[in-house]
């Protein structure tokens, strides 16, 4: 039971059962969602799914390095997708790498969403000079490409997963703030807001229980698509050597380390992580795009 449901002027429900039905009616979007969930499950249960723990250096033998897909290692283990220059099983490295990629992508997108939504709501609700200051700040951040902001921040902070997260959140929050503010401005003109104000509810209550839930649909869409962008951004930063530590490669770093070998017929080091990254980002985008279409009245037939 939510507090909002007991309100005499309850706002209209945002996510309905019919939305889910309409979403699942599109096989491509559904496939995207299913693939993403499957990949996410693999990532979560990586220690049980992956044949090897690629982060345990004692496990890796240089004698097994650069083996082609389908090879058998010194200790009889099979490397279905080959090994990398350190003797890491590519399949395991990819599953663990995807875990890092999804974790960073998801966490940074969610935290950026929370920060951005707060800033946007406050700006819209407060108006006046606070709105002006916050929105100029947002515009300043949005004026630079995300990758540029993240690159600059990473070169200041240095590498490491924690610093990568901070840089990515700082590069992403502004988009959420802008979307939240415009959604909130529209909602503030609605009757239920006037009614809530007329009822004498406190500002906090109106902000959190009435305004915020109704700004959620566009945020959900943006959030979903931003996860894909965040995964790609993390891969880009890691590819450039600014992200995760070399002993715990994410998908981007795996692609980067394979890049040295692209002209030497050792295609597997870069191609397989590349394909996995493509599938991962595509699946999120397919689901996100369809959700956006459903929630955008102008695109509905």
């Amino acid at each position: 039971m939510t507090l909002g449901a007991t309100d005499p002027v309850a706002p209209p429900p945002v996510v309905t059962r019919s939305l889910w039905r309409r979403f699942t009616a599109n096989p491509v979007a559904l496939a995207g969602l299913v693939v993403f969930i499957l990949l996410a499950l693999m990532a979560v249960f990586a220690p049980y799914v992956a044949p090897q723990d690629p982060y345990d250096l004692a496990n890796l033998s240089l004698l097994d390095n650069l083996l082609p897909p389908g090879s058998t290692g010194m200790n009889g283990q099979s490397f279905w997708l080959g090994t990398d220059p350190q003797g890491r099983d590519m399949l395991s490295a990819m599953i663990y790498g995807m875990r890092t990629s999804i974790f960073i992508g998801l966490t940074s997108a969610v935290i950026a969403l929370m920060i951005g939504a707060t800033v946007g709501l406050v700006a819209a609700f407060a108006g006046g000079w606070l709105d002006a200051v916050l929105m100029r700040l947002v515009e300043l951040v949005l004026a630079f490409p995300t990758i540029l902001i993240a690159l600059v921040l990473m070169s200041i902070f240095g590498s490491g997963i924690d610093k990568l997260l901070i840089a990515m959140i700082m590069a992403q929050w502004a988009g959420f703030a802008r979307v939240t503010r415009s959604a909130a401005l529209v909602e503030m003109e609605r009757e239920y807001m006037t009614a809530a104000r007329a009822m004498g509810f406190g500002r906090m209550r109106i902000l959190v229980l009435h305004l915020f839930p109704n700004c959620l649909p566009p945020l959900m869409v943006l959030g979903l698509i931003q996860i894909a962008d965040a995964i790609a951004l993390e891969a880009t930063l890691s590819f450039l050597g600014l992200g995760v530590p070399v002993t715990e490669p994410s998908l981007g770093l795996l692609i980067a380390s394979g890049f040295d070998y692209i002209l030497t017929q050792r295609y597997w080091i870069t191609i397989f992580p590349g394909i996995l990254l493509l599938i991962l980002v595509m699946s999120v985008n397919l689901a996100g795009d369809h959700l956006r279409n459903l929630l955008n009245p102008r695109l509905q037939k």
Binding site: L57, S61, P245, V246, T247
Partner: peptide, 25 residues
Amino acid sequence: GDRVVQALAQFWSQIGLDVEVETFT
């Protein structure tokens, strides 16, 4: 060089050291 430092960490893990590798530009 980036592969050499990882290999060193691998060698030293064999004698019980837990080696983290950090590289900078």
